[in-house]
């Protein structure tokens, strides 16, 4: 496991000159993925920002084998790759499903659920920018309450799906949340996942300056605020045991969490929120934390 950034490899497998927007956190997460797992991985990538960022034929900026695939089919396709490698006796290659929130929590949830139920030996990573970013920011099942998107011009009326817990219901051996603002946490989770047999699910919050309407320089800061306000919680569920990870483990006391308002008001997508809305969101966050704390103390989901 990595203790500090300086221990990480200087090798890059997301090559310079890719097409991600300036300040894209997904691009940071991709670099971290490769820092964690190296290049002995095969990626299955459905329609999402990552199917565009690497650029067009005959070039790509991803220096590992990638199977681009249909929007809803990541879990199934990865199952096929895993089966083929098993047949061929290839044991030292990790299969990674890498999908956005739309491709995970909406259109791809069936194939993901099927793959998890079958215990497919792969790591599935959902990078969640809380909307369909590639098509220009439409609402997804992962868009939070109140957020502007192009299909919720006055703000979303419903709450975000709790996908890590949907995955927990599959009783897979490893589930974790992460955010590119906490690179060592993410890398260690990936390395841990690699050593576990079966389906591993990691859900990353992926701040998106283009869609969330904040300055490109604030990507890491926004991710940090998401965690510090408790809107995004870093945890892992290993064989059913729930555990907070730093720094979320230091935020169990409500007083230590910054008000959600600090996170919300930095982003243009929450411009339409009223004071009542903000209060409602704060209440929901506090309730979620009560639930998580109960899970952490009972240790079982």
């Amino acid at each position: 496991m990595a203790g500090s950034i300086k221990e990480l490899s200087k090798e890059e497998y997301l090559l310079k000159g890719h097409g991600a927007c300036a300040g894209c956190s997904l691009a940071i997460s991709l670099r971290l993925l490769f820092k964690a797992l190296g290049n002995k991985i095969v990626m299955v990538v459905p329609a999402c920002c990552t199917s565009v960022i690497p650029g067009p034929y005959p070039y790509t900026s991803l220096a590992v084998p990638v199977q681009n695939m249909l929007f809803e089919a990541t879990g199934a396709t990865a199952s096929g790759v895993v089966a083929a490698f098993h047949r061929r006796g290839i044991k030292d290659v990790t299969v990674v499903g890498w999908a956005g929130d739309g491709g995970t929590v909406d259109i791809g949830i069936q194939a993901l659920s099927g793959a998890a139920e079958r215990g497919t030996d792969f790591i599935y990573i959902c990078y969640d920018n809380e909307a369909y970013g590639n098509t220009g920011m439409q609402r997804s099942g992962a868009t939070p309450y109140g957020a502007w998107t192009t299909t919720t011009p006055t703000g979303k009326k419903e709450r975000k799906k709790d996908t890590p817990f949907i995955m927990a219901a599959h009783r897979i051996p490893y589930i974790a949340t992460a955010c590119s603002s906490y690179p060592i946490d993410f890398i260690n989770k990936l390395r841990k996942a690699k050593e576990i047999e079966g389906t591993k699910y990691i859900h990353i919050l992926a701040p998106c300056p283009t869609g969330w309407r904040y300055d490109t320089s604030k990507t890491v800061e926004i991710g940090r605020l998401a965690v510090q306000t408790g809107m995004w919680v870093l945890f892992e569920i290993e064989n059913g045991k729930f555990k907070f990870n730093p720094p979320s483990n230091r935020l169990i006391d409500k007083a230590k969490r910054r008000p959600v308002k600090e996170y919300l008001t930095l982003q243009g997508r929450f411009r339409n929120l009223t004071e009542d809305d903000i209060e409602r969101i704060q209440k929901w966050v506090d309730e979620d934390w009560e639930r998580y704390c109960k899970l952490a103390s009972n240790q079982y989901v």
Partner: peptide, 18 residues
């Protein structure tokens, strides 16, 4: 089929976006 080769600058010299 569309098999693409890893290349630095697949989207050109993106420094020009700056």
């Amino acid at each position: 089929t569309t098999l693409s080769i890893p290349t630095v600058g697949s989207m050109g010299k993106t420094g020009s976006w700056r």
